[in-house]
């Protein structure tokens, strides 16, 4: 895997054709819960998964979906946080650190595996006011 650079390289997200899912800033969710998709479909999360691999994003988009593109700088311009793959791998050790703290080491390791497999980065909307999230998402991603 070539080294991804924040200043140079894009992030991709596979999602529905008609738009990117809108996160919920107030949702209280560990990074482990987010990555493992615990809580079932429709669970609320302040995070949004992206990947440095366009091929990986295409898998998530599927034949009926669409790959969206952004950069860490575009996210930062809208005050949206960016947690890189390297940072995630640093947090997903043992029983997790910081916002990746979790009760099960097995689930932390499994989340770590997914992050590595899919070259995952997270966008963090926790600091965005609820009524501005949809606009922020719209502006971050290029069609």
């Amino acid at each position: 895997m070539s080294t991804w650079r924040k200043s140079r390289d894009p992030l991709f997200r596979g999602d529905k054709k008609d738009g990117v899912e809108v996160p919920v800033p107030s949702a209280s969710l560990s990074i482990v819960e987010h990555v493992l998709y615990l809580g079932g479909k429709g669970r609320e999360s302040p995070f949004q998964s992206t990947t440095e691999s366009e091929d990986a994003a295409e898998v998530f988009a599927g034949t009926g979906g669409k790959v969206y593109r952004t950069t860490a700088a575009r996210a930062a311009a809208k005050s949206v946080g960016h947690i890189s793959r390297v940072e995630l791998l640093g947090l997903l050790k043992g029983k997790g650190k910081g916002r990746a703290k979790w009760s099960s080491a097995l689930e932390v390791m499994t989340a770590r595996k997914y992050v590595e497999q899919w070259a995952e980065h997270l966008l963090d909307f926790a600091e965005i006011p609820e009524d501005e999230v949809a606009d922020a998402v719209e502006e971050i991603y290029a069609r």
Partner: peptide
């Protein structure tokens, strides 16, 4: 499946 991870690491995972 396709993966951005090098083959040797994919085998390890």
């Amino acid at each position: 499946g396709e993966s951005p991870v090098p083959l040797a690491r994919r085998v390890d995972l």
